[in-house]
Simulated scan of single mutants.
Amino acid sequence: MAFFDKVFASVGIGSATVDTKLERDRYTPGETINGVVEIRGGKVDQQVDDIYLSLNTTYLKESDDKKYNVTATIDRFRITSPFTIGKNERKEIPFSFQLPLDTPLSIGRSKIWVTTGLDIKNAVDPGDKDFIQVVPNQLMNAIFNAVDGLGFRLREADCEEASYKVRGRLPFVQEFEYVPTSGPFRGRLDELEVVMRPSGNGAIELLLQVDRRARGLGGLFAEAAGLDETNVRLTVTSADIPNLQQQIQSVIQRFS
């Protein structure tokens, strides 16, 4: 019977299982995530070569004029060296890692989750999937409030594949697409796209795409040629929060 237990374990039947328990499920970019990986042995002793945590999301990729969702690994963390998990043994391995600053926010269709896996030779890799909520930090919240205060309404938020000129270490950026419904830019802009790129010193680089509304025949030709869009970069810090709305308004006005 022991022989058959070993055979079954090698194909994932009666083998080790894994369950990750996070300290909480709500974080801001840059915060530390703490938790415990619980491993339960199967019907036989098994060598575990590696335990890893992967932080994942999805983004839209375009090919042949079609858009489709692709899973991307934001970061990957190895949390232990090789060890043996005994028959029916239970182990708890604590872990800690920093949520990367460029992790997308849980807004719109953007989902973020942690995947846990064990590398076990000749066995199916048992996995575990835990979703987390990534919420804006103080400066990000101030940016959202400033844009809202200028009369813009968030229409869509999504992670999309980006060009090498715009992307950071990841192949995508998270875009927040706004439309003006009131305030000084209603009737002047079609939309405003905002991308936030946090840096390690607490600053955020804002990439703004200002899409002007066509005015007259010349405006229609400009819109058809894509000349009605202007890309602007603006770096802000926590010190700018009291005057953030005025700063963003001033930048948009120059190109609207």
Rank of each mutant, 00 (worst) to 15 (best):
F77N: 02
P29D: 00
L101M: 09
T28W: 00
T58I: 06
G35E: 04
R90T: 15
T103G: 08
I33F: 02
V37S: 09
R76T: 14
L55C: 04
G42P: 05
V37E: 03
L101W: 05
T103S: 12
A72F: 12
F77I: 14
Y68P: 02
S81C: 01
S96C: 06
I107Y: 01
I39S: 08
V48D: 02
R40Y: 08
D75P: 04
L101H: 03
R24V: 01
T57E: 06
F97W: 07
S54L: 14
D45G: 01
R40N: 15
V36Q: 12
R90Q: 13
P82E: 05
G41V: 14
P82M: 07
G30Q: 02
T28P: 00
R109M: 00
G41I: 15
K43V: 05
N69S: 10
D102E: 14
S63R: 15
F97H: 06
I79G: 03
D75S: 15
N34V: 02
V48Y: 06
D64V: 10
R78V: 03
V44W: 03
K91H: 11
G35A: 09
S110T: 14
L53H: 05
K61I: 10
N34K: 12
D49V: 02
V37I: 13
G30N: 02
P29R: 03
K111C: 00
Q46M: 12
T58F: 10
L55F: 04
P100T: 03
D65K: 11
V48G: 07
I79K: 03
I74C: 08
K111D: 05
L101A: 06
I85W: 08
E62I: 14
R109E: 04
R26P: 00
D64G: 07
P104D: 09
G30F: 02
T28F: 00
G86W: 04
T57S: 11
E31A: 04
E92Q: 15
K43G: 07
Q46G: 07
N34D: 10
K111W: 00
R78Q: 08
T71Q: 13
G108Q: 03
T58R: 13
D64N: 15
K66I: 12
L60H: 05
Y68K: 11
S96F: 07
G108E: 01
R78I: 03
V36S: 09
R40D: 09
P82V: 06
R26K: 10
I39L: 15
S54G: 14
V70T: 13
R76D: 07
S63D: 14
R24I: 01
T80G: 08
Q98I: 09
D64M: 13
I33D: 01
I79F: 04
T71Y: 07
F83G: 10
Y68F: 15
K67R: 15
T58L: 08
T84E: 05
I107D: 03
D49C: 03
S106W: 00
P94I: 08
I51Y: 01
Y52S: 10
I107G: 01
L60N: 08
E89W: 12
R90Y: 09
N88A: 15
S54K: 14
E31N: 01
D49H: 12
Q98E: 08
L101V: 07
I33Q: 02
Q98T: 13
D25K: 12
T84N: 06
T32D: 05
D49M: 11
D45Q: 07
D50Y: 04
S110M: 00
Q98G: 01
G35P: 04
E31G: 00
S54F: 10
K66R: 13
G35F: 07
L101T: 04
S96R: 13
K87G: 04
E92L: 12
D49S: 13
